[in-house]
Design a protein around this nucleic acid. Structure first.
Lengths: 228, 228
DNA sequence: GGAATCTCTGTGACAATGTCACATACACCC
DNA sequence: GGGTGTATGTGACATTGTCACAGAGATTCC
């Protein structure tokens, strides 16, 4: 139950579908939503488990990933403010177990809604239903993009894209991350990442140090993303 | 508009959700559904196009795949009898362009429903809505499996699994397929497939000839799927 | 029948990527 | 300062992808 006016208006700003909702639905929504905090780093969903709640993220990010037999990982997508773990939703609706792992990357503040409500609203409210459909469609698109990336693009180009994206998203040219973490995002191994980073460094595009990467020549890096 | 009683009962047998539907929805469904035939091989949806119809497949199969810059392909999933192109549905709902290619593999007989109806039913009928959600969830699961496969499993093991599956699905030990087609399904290149098939042949597991593969030792092939 | 022309498969060389074992370097704690 | 983690570097080798081109069936056309 959420009643703080300030909180409610903050939530409305994040979740666009609530703005379009009528009073009826909003009332029910805030009545059943619970504000919850999760500390990072911490697993949220484990592969093969059933989901009992849906989380709408207000603050912080979570990472949804697959784990390979050999211990390698690959990130399927991230969930940030204004988004929601649709895989959870998908599991709720289809009743299937969660097919991946989800982990809290930064402390998360989220609205938590019980499975039963999610189901009820899906049948009852068009606004909510559309929100759910859009989420699932978007994630399907995300995952298809991941397939495309790993199936067809060379690792060095993907790494270049990755660094640029990480750089601009933080607004900074210093990226605080380990080689292992990059490898886990891209679905490759640490050694490969180290090798390519060293290459980029020799070419003067970046500087690497323990735990971070600095972009020196974003322009040059951008060229690496498409052709050799 | 579909009115032939025989046809209707055949359709009911294929699409489980229609059996659970009330008379109301069924009537509307058959009123707006059109029976359509597509000859193979023929592209159905092209990447980047908008979808104007949703197809529920009665007979035949279609393949949904991604195309890489270098001309390589990878199959995301197939659509068979009783299924439907959910990517289309997803696009219809989110209004986004189709993010892949779809092609007719065998002659297809399908029920075609216009976008407007799909949207209307989704808001109006619980049965239909659930059908749509289940489809999207299932496909999301399929695509996630593809990610797992290409990210973590070795090609030889995937190929062994592929052959076994192809074999049992036809009920025959002779699989009529070219190396290129296998490569396109697995998202690798023809040369790699040829190499591994030759390996398998030397080990007495299969026989290969122009345009087909014969399984000689399914047991041995099954062992190849998990460990060296 | 035989030549021309497809499509399909085979092959070797090499580049890119993944794996393994182990060395080295840095950070932090006591 | 030494010990203990964690992060990175490196070389050897296996797997996979790419390229260029060679043959081997199949088909068509004369």
């Amino acid at each position: 139950m959420i009643s703080d006016t300030q909180q409610i208006s903050a939530i409305l700003r994040q979740f666009h579908f609530l703005q379009e909702a009528d009073e009826d639905f909003r009332e029910i929504f805030f009545k059943h939503a619970t504000l919850s905090r999760i500390d990072a780093p911490q697993p949220i969903c484990d592969q093969g488990t059933q989901c009992s709640h849906l989380a709408l993220v207000l603050e912080g990010t979570a990472r949804v990933y697959k784990l390979g037999e050999n211990g390698r990982e690959i990130t399927l997508y991230r969930i940030g403010p204004g988004e929601s773990c649709i895989l959870t939703a998908s599991c709720i609706i289809s009743g299937k177990p969660f097919p991946a792992f989800a982990i809290c990357e930064t402390p998360i503040e989220a609205l938590v809604i019980h499975t039963a409500e999610v189901k009820r609203w899906t049948n009852q409210f068009t606004v909510w239903r559309n929100y759910m459909f859009t989420l699932i469609s978007d994630r399907l698109g995300d995952v298809i993009s991941v397939v495309e990336e790993i199936a067809f693009r060379r690792v060095d180009r993907r790494l270049a894209s990755y660094l640029l994206q990480r750089g601009t998203s933080t607004g900074d040219d210093d990226i605080k991350i380990t080689h292992q973490a990059i490898a886990s995002d891209l679905g490759t191994s640490r050694e490969v990442v180290s090798r390519i980073l060293k290459d980029f460094e020799h070419q003067g595009l970046i500087s690497v140090a323990r735990g971070f990467v600095r972009l020196n020549d974003a322009q040059g890096l951008a060229e690496k993303t498409h052709e050799n």
